[in-house]
């Protein structure tokens, strides 16, 4: 167990280097120039631009820039934003908690609503409720999140006036509710379907028949015997889902103007701020890796037949 965790943690090192390098190269390959962008449409002095570029190290070859960035990271230096002159670490520290809050909110919603819906559908497989849930989840899967976001904004903010269309106060749960539901929609659909299939399948298992033959009340048959077994694949999915929720936040935060890392990374991308994008994306990658490790460990708790070596 301890050795397994150690090995998994060591595996994160190459993934970390690989992902940062990849994003670094992509940023380098993108057209546009962060320094020129400072002047916008105005004419500028080429000498001044060259001097600033030299100062920022942008005139150096790619490998040098990457090496400089990596060594900086080990000193806790995430680099500095060119336009605002703010350290990237500050930008992340300010935006990250907002996204964490939004993601957790969406995650809890996904888990609770997804499992309940999936359980309800799976217990009545092939019946009316099951079909309804099937159509509903199909709808959620096929509507892009920005369409759903604007739709929700239109209905709940402009027509019904229940909420503000954008998030004014990122600490307020009631304001985060709408973006969280939009963010959760896709995962909710997947969790619902996964739970439904798993429940319907396990319902036919021999051990469920045994549980009924033991004279257990239905509540116990479903709640203890069925659910424990049915949730194993769902938990696996949820682990990887935390990462995709954070990535999905880029779009959702844009629609609802949430000042999280999604918004920050989007702004940085439009300004070609390499260090900000790499910093944030790397952070998301790390969260993703940590979440999947956690889930793999949880897997052994849920299913005792799994052993780590």
């Amino acid at each position: 167990m301890g050795r397994y965790v150690a090995r998994r943690l060591l595996q994160m090192i190459p993934v970390f280097i690989g992902s940062t390098l990849l994003i670094f190269c992509m940023m380098y390959a993108l057209p546009g120039d962060p320094v020129k962008a400072l002047w916008g449409e105005q004419s500028s002095d080429p000498a001044q631009i060259a001097a600033l570029k030299h100062h920022l190290g942008l005139d150096q070859p790619l490998w040098w820039q990457y090496w400089h960035y990596l060594t900086g990271l080990f000193h806790g230096d995430f680099g500095t934003q060119i336009a605002s002159q703010r350290p990237v670490a500050d930008v992340i520290a300010q935006a990250f908690p907002v996204t964490i809050r939004l993601t957790l909110f969406a995650f809890v919603f996904t888990v609770v609503a997804g499992i309940l819906l999936g359980l309800a559908a799976g217990l009545r497989a092939e019946k009316a409720l099951d079909r309804l849930v099937l159509v509903f989840t199909l709808l959620l899967i096929s509507i892009p999140s920005f369409v759903l976001g604007f739709l929700f904004q239109y209905v709940f903010a402009f027509q019904l006036g229940w909420v503000t269309p954008t998030v004014q106060d990122s600490e307020s749960f009631s304001q985060l509710m709408l973006p969280a539901v939009v963010l959760a929609a896709l995962s909710l659909a997947y969790v619902t379907r996964l739970t439904r299939t798993s429940v319907a399948e396990n319902l036919r298992a021999d051990y469920i028949r045994t549980a009924v033959a033991k004279g257990l009340p239905r509540r116990r048959v479903v709640g203890v015997h069925l659910l424990r077994n049915s949730l194993i694949p769902v938990v696996t999915f949820l682990g990887t889902d935390i990462g995709s929720l954070m990535a999905g936040a880029v779009v959702t935060e844009g629609i609802f103007n949430v000042p999280g890392i999604g918004n920050a990374v989007f702004q940085a991308l439009t300004r070609r701020e390499g260090s900000t994008v790499v910093g944030i994306v790397t952070l998301i990658v790390l969260v993703y890796l940590a979440a999947s490790l956690l889930v793999d460990l949880l897997y052994a708790v849920l299913d005792p037949r799994i052993r780590y070596a």
């Binding site: 045994t210 424990r228 077994n229 005792p304």
Partner: peptide, 16 residues
Amino acid sequence: MAMIFQDALSALNPVL
């Protein structure tokens, strides 16, 4: 009244 099933491996709950 109680019942004994044929295949005990599948008739017992694997996670309990």
